[in-house]
Amino acid sequence: MSDIESPSTDVKFTCRDVKVHYGDFEALHGIDIDIPDRGVTAFIGPSGCGKSTFLRTFNRMNDTIEGCRVSGEVLMDGQDIYDKTLDPVLLRAQVGMVFQKPNPFPKSIYDNIAYGPRIHGLTSSKAELDALVEKSLRRAGLWDEVKDRLKLSGTGLSGGQQQRLVIARAIAVSPQVILMDEPASALDPIATAKLEALIDELKERYCIIIVTHSMAQAARVSDKTAFFYMGDLIEFDDTEKIFTNPSNSRTQDYITGRTG
């Protein structure tokens, strides 16, 4: 841990022996990991290795899946997020999420962004809300493209714009963490490049965890990389180290294309 580029040494999430079951099937076999507070952490690994499942434990989205059980400890700022007294609704307000397929709500662009602040009561006046919408769209790099058509439907935007709209929507509720589940898999290369540039800006303010299929993307955007294989965390280290000199042979095989 001598890397000077690591922007913070604070730990956001502490995971100890996290196991996830779907019915009788164990998808994760006890994961231990510390996710840093600022910067981008990438989860890589072949399909079905459990990286997306693991991502969904951080905002308890697994709760919405029937028959899914999570055991072990997931601490956010030292607090157990699976504690019975903690409400997933408030947790999710602090941990935003961006999905594989852009999923704007069937509402206007403005209402897409204003939805979160409204349900959480974050603003007390129309002007304040307008300002928050603008700030969020600006931060997501979308403001200039949509400022003249805020009243039009969010579903009418292009795929890349939709994905940035979804990020703006998440930013608007003032989260501390943003989870991204293969956010660029449905985008073309240009939109992907824009998205990656955006992630680079956002990592100054948020803890970002990204699941990605593309090793190149992980190498480009992340500060730390975790390699998952068959429900196990194989290796977790600085991205540079993982891609140049991995300590585990299975990581080596994967990044060189021999497995996957």
Binding site: T64, L91, A93, G96, M97, N103, P106, Y115, I119
Partner: peptide
């Protein structure tokens, strides 16, 4: 689609908020 519901839940909306507004 379920993804739209997930989008709302991920913002910290309750079921009825998701239902009524999204």
């Amino acid at each position: 689609p379920q993804t739209i519901r997930d989008g709302s839940y991920a913002l910290g909306a309750t079921k009825s908020e998701t239902m009524k507004q999204v």
